[in-house]
Deep mutational scan, measured.
Amino acid sequence: SPISQSQFIPLGEILCLAISAMNSARKPVTQEALMEHLTTCFPGVPTPSQEILRHTLNTLVRERKIYPTPDGYFIVTP
Rank of each mutant, 00 (worst) to 15 (best):
I19R: 00
L11D: 02
V61E: 10
E51S: 10
P70E: 12
R54I: 10
P78Y: 07
I9F: 13
G44V: 06
K27E: 09
V45P: 04
S4E: 02
T77G: 09
L11M: 10
E51C: 06
K27R: 09
G44S: 13
K27W: 04
H55R: 09
Y73R: 09
C16D: 02
F42A: 09
C16G: 03
I66H: 00
K65C: 03
L60D: 00
R64P: 00
G72V: 01
H55G: 15
H37R: 05
T59E: 14
S20W: 01
H55V: 10
L38Q: 00
Q31P: 13
I19Q: 00
T40P: 01
P46S: 05
I66R: 00
Q31L: 08
E13V: 03
I14S: 13
E32H: 14
K65L: 08
M35G: 09
I52V: 14
S20E: 11
P46R: 05
E32R: 08
I14H: 14
T69I: 02
A21F: 03
Q5V: 09
L60P: 00
S49F: 00
V29R: 00
L60W: 01
P43D: 06
E32Q: 14
T30V: 10
A33L: 08
I66F: 00
G44R: 15
I9M: 15
M22V: 02
V76C: 14
R26Q: 11
T47M: 10
Q5L: 07
S24F: 04
L34S: 00
P70F: 07
A21L: 02
L15Y: 03
G72E: 08
H55Q: 09
L53D: 00
E51T: 07
S1E: 01
L17A: 12
P28H: 11
V76H: 06
L17V: 08
Q7A: 14
I19M: 03
P48Y: 04
Y73L: 10
Q50V: 05
A18V: 04
Q7W: 05
M35W: 06
Q31E: 13
L53S: 01
Q7H: 06
I66M: 03
Q7D: 10
R54P: 02
L34T: 01
P46H: 05
Q5A: 14
I14T: 10
T39E: 05
L60E: 00
E51D: 14
T77S: 13
A21K: 14
I52Q: 14
M22S: 02
F8K: 05
D71W: 04
A21G: 08
E63S: 11
F74Y: 08
P46G: 05
A25S: 09
A21R: 11
C41T: 06
G12A: 02
Y73T: 04
T69L: 04
N58C: 09
A21P: 00
T59Y: 09
S6P: 08
Y73M: 06
T40M: 06
R62W: 07
T69Y: 02
F74R: 14
R64N: 09
T30S: 12
M22P: 01
E13S: 10
E13I: 01
P2T: 09
F8Q: 04
P28L: 04
S20Y: 04
T59I: 14
R64E: 15
A18G: 07
T77P: 12
Q50S: 10
L34A: 01
I19A: 02
A18Y: 03
H37N: 07
S4P: 13
I3W: 01
I75C: 13
E63C: 09
T77H: 07
E51R: 03
E51A: 07
P10C: 05
I19K: 00
G72N: 04
R26P: 04
T69K: 03
V45K: 03
G44D: 15
R64H: 14
